[in-house]
Amino acid sequence: MASLNQLKELTRVRLYGFWREPEAMFWVFLFPLVLAGVLGFAFRSGGVVPTTIGVVNGPQAAAMSEVLALDEHLEEERFETREEAYIKLRRGAVDALFESIDPPEISMDPTRPDSEMARMRVLRALALSAGAEDAPLEIDEVTEKGSRYVDFLFPGLLGMNLMGTGMWGVGFAIADIRRRKFLKRMLVTPMSRGYFFMSFILSRLVFLLFELLILTSFGAWVLGVPFRGDILSYLIVSFTGAILFAGMGLLVASRAKTIEGVSGIMNFVMMPMWLASGVFFSYERFPEFLHPAIKALPLTSLNDALRAVMIDGETVFQQGLEMGIMAAWTVVCFVIALKIFRWG
């Protein structure tokens, strides 16, 4: 019977492998914080975005200015010539050109949302100047926490981080010790292979606790992301994700002989999930027929479950489908990985 001391030593060595690599520390801890910080700041909900309307000097310019002044979100930019104004319009520096007031005419690009908004605002300003009341539409302004971009982004980044650290942490480490023939050296000892694999999972879980602690604190205190769900659900979903991606890392590295080989497969596997699994934007934007495939991706399940628990305050029991998909991936990855694992 192999002693538990062995598992302890193997796990300890795995953890040292992380702690003592500054680069690994950066990618695991600092990078997601920086990313969340930068993206959260870039897409912060900082009031209404103004619309810029170009006006060319001429007999009607003063009248047009007056109309534009009626909407606080309309900004005017004066041009001497039409050519000049057109260049700015083409470059998107102005959202529309106010061509004339009688009859009212603007130039805009209907495929640009900003131009479309310019049209609406100009219409509204024209209506107001003609003495009309504001549109008979009751407006309830919502800028509640939880509906901001950063609230959407944060669970996605967390999921992406669990995927990255799980796959890199396990895949890279295995490729590295195989390349060094360290794996082969362990193979000629009576080391328990079960404990060898378990040490990767254990070290991932120990590490996960730190990842969660640091990222969650940053999310909650610096970005003000709400945490509505219960801790246990949050932990269970995260642990499941971490183990799943540890298994994927193991699978990716199960035969690769070089770090480069592992990197290649790793990126090939992760790239579609970065794009499609709803890290940076919702996968609802992809065509409908792709949704089932996207939802079957492991990262999609993890992100959906994390969002539901964190933002919507659901429990892990309401994430049956997601948890099921993750469990299936986990089993498949481990079974195949252990079967095809190359020791020599």
């Binding site: 062995q6 030593e9 328990s192």
Partner: peptide
């Protein structure tokens, strides 16, 4: 065999001893 760069002599031996 290349041992792990960032393990000490003692740690490396301790790992193998545990097997």
């Amino acid at each position: 065999t290349e041992f792990q760069d960032k393990l000490s002599v003692h740690e490396t031996l301790r790992l193998f001893a545990s097997f």
